[in-house]
Write a protein that binds this DNA or RNA. Structure first.
Lengths: 104, 104
DNA sequence: TATATACATTTACACTTGTCAATATATAAA
DNA sequence: TTTATATATTGACAAGTGTAAATGTATATA
């Protein structure tokens, strides 16, 4: 079974601060120093969380001068949702009215 | 901020064995002893994972004699997907063609 | 009652993870 | 070059987590 990579992606969101970062980036790109002001964590801790999010593919980064700009990755988001959908769904396709299933 | 409960739900899937259990239950109800045969873990470990999944709401349990029958919870699945969608999405609603966004 | 089976709980341990202080690196400005 | 700013890395530590052995509990059967 090769769930290791999927577990890594799931774990990328298994933290309060990283959930907060995902919300903070929903309205567009932000640099690290701005995120740092919004979250009650130190700079090394933020740097650690951004690395986890970027490694998962959910967040993309762009360096400009001495600033790092972070933004949600459309491909990463799409891929993440599809991955989750593979595990969090029932077998309704074999039912009589699959389109009415809760998992849709 | 109150991400604690959401983090707990995310963490419910942040384990290889629990992902495997979600797949094993996709085709319908199974009792613990059957799951035990499919996974390479001991009985106490399975019991622990089932508790985590049930507490998250993703899995429902039903006791029948000395057997515990586990199944995916439609409500739990629906709720989980909605919760994830709240974090893993961009701000496309404010764009010109939100329906064409990757996050849909 | 005695025995067997299915499952839960307790306990202990190794491993992982989030955190911050200290330090390092890179870039821009004075 | 010197100084200030933004970020990354290292190291240490406490807390959390997955695991299995041992044990407990409930139910069914002989």
């Amino acid at each position: 079974m090769g769930f290791r990579e999927d577990v890594r992606k799931v774990k990328a969101l298994a933290d309060e601060n990283r959930l907060a970062i995902m919300l903070a980036l929903q309205h567009g790109e932000k640099c690290g120093c701005v995120l740092l002001e919004e979250l009650n964590i130190t700079q090394p801790t933020l740097s650690h969380h951004m690395k986890v999010l970027c490694d998962s593919g959910l967040v993309a980064s762009r360096k400009e001068g001495k600033w790092m700009h972070y933004s949600l990755s459309p491909e990463g988001i799409s891929s993440y949702r599809e991955m989750i959908s593979g595990y969090v769904r029932c077998d309704c396709e074999k039912e009589e009215t699959p389109s009415a299933c809760c998992c849709k």
